[in-house]
Amino acid sequence: MIDLPNPVVVAAGCGGTGRELAALGALEGIGAFTTRSLTLNPRAGGPAPRIAETPSGLVHSTGLPGPGLEIFLATELPWLVQQGLRVVVSLSGASVAEHAEVARRLAQAPGIRALEVDLAVPDARAHGLLDVREPFHAANVVAAVVREAQDLPVLAKVRSDVLRVAESARVVTDAGASAVVVGGPQAAALPDGRPAGLSGPAVLPLALRCVGEVRAALPGVPVIGCGGISTAADARAFLDAGAVAVQVGTALLHDPTTAARIAADLAGGPS
């Protein structure tokens, strides 16, 4: 695992390129920054409307818009590293081979602290991404990424399905993942029925249960908790449940300073 000065991490897909948050002073004191999930080639993303509001949550199907690996390596990564941030690069792809290729090239780029494999995209099939339905699919992807990642730790973000999350965590760590990220979006649908993910405080209790399931089944595996965290008390609940770190995502869309604020609160000592 990577050494974090603070347990608060910006979650994949919610921190933009980093510059948007930096402009607001909202990266100060955070433990690490996770990039949006990168693919080999640029992606335009899915059709609008992409996001709908629901009580205490957002339903989202963005289709992972992104610049592709080449532009990321040339323009976004150097800036993030230059800021002194601990950079975790999240990756996705249409196939195991694409994941492996992205990991291979990231392993050669300077300044990255860890890779995170996004195995929890709830609308993957709708956007032509690898649909990781079964834990063994996840294990295959992780094994391929770990092979290419050289010395970089690989974090596996697994589906937050309460009944199967422990099994997923077991197989991805067997495949070489250094830690698991637990509690991402729940599979959901946009109002027009298109597949999507549900994130935000609405999913927090489910995410917390997922963390508990993994900790109980695999006490030796480091768990990073995420899902609906928007206050220091939320973060403490995950840490108390045994998570080594927490990721803050959707809350940043409502208040971009959330991660920095929680990081400062936690650094202020036990409450």
Binding site: G16, A44, A48, L253, P256
Partner: peptide, 17 residues
């Protein structure tokens, strides 16, 4: 004007071709 969720460039909810 596109439907905005965050307004700050984080959510990718306002695609403009």
């Amino acid at each position: 004007e596109q439907p905005l969720t965050c307004g700050t460039g984080l959510c990718h909810g306002c695609p403009l071709p």
